[in-house]
Amino acid sequence: MTTNGWVPQLPSVIRTKGLTKRYGRRLVVDALDLDIVEGDRFGFLGPNGSGKSTTLRMLLGLVFPTAGSAELLGAPLPRGCKSVLPQVGSLIEGPAYYRHMSGRANLRLFDAAGPGGPRRTRRERVETALHRVRMGRVDERPVRAYSLGMKQRLGLAGALLREPRLLVLDEPTNGLDPQGVHEVRELLAELNREGTTVVLSSHLLSEVEALCSSVAIINAGRMVVSGSVDELRSPTGDVHVRTPDPDMAVRLLGEKVLRRDADQLTIASDDPAGLNASLVSAGVRVTELVAQRRSLEEVFLDLTEAGEIPL
């Protein structure tokens, strides 16, 4: 969507209030409040079985909430599904195909099902989508002969068929080699720059860390924490310093040096700028100075009681 003129506040693409799902007596999603704004790169993190997929399924109208409300692109769910789903591309729990058909045939069939634009531009849409995921020259082999990575790309191509406003992706880089992971990440970043909101669920923290601007961590169906990635990755109070004069630095700082490894020092300091000034003014040359931030993994493990939850 283009944002011409004044847009005081970005509209929400996904908003839930007290969203709850119960299967029998088992509480799978517990009063979840989410607010994802247009243009976001949102990471939905949680261990396996934490309710991520069920939440995404509720947002796509596949699963009906037990309680609470949800809005997708401004339409209430599950009633409003039909009007907004054409603007959403999704990849939920792995791609799925008719295995005896080629990737192209699958996409054409998929495009023909439901509202997808005129028939005469179908071939073009399919080729564009295939091209975007670097499968433009794929042959007519049946999908069952595809590698895991190719299937995954084809699934992404399916999600991109209608140039969606919102992409909902579950583990999109599953099964891809490092080159493929990189390409998908680039592709998603590119789509996001063009205005597509990307919602990505993953149990891979590095994945979310590399791509997402904001994140929600859920565990056992409950929201543990949400916010921007930068906020969550607060400084740990440790500063890494690399210097050609480590001995001088140790002498200067004394107890504050937590660890020394040749020319690398780990120093306890809440004020990296001040530390740098005092080192330099004492004649210690500094090659590198980095305030250490907690990785999302540390944040996650802290919040979900490490060890008890398999990742």
Partner: peptide
């Protein structure tokens, strides 16, 4: 079973 049901329904096909 093939998993295609979720993609058809989110296409969306009523």
């Amino acid at each position: 079973q093939a998993g295609t049901l979720r993609y058809l329904l989110t296409r969306p096909v009523g």
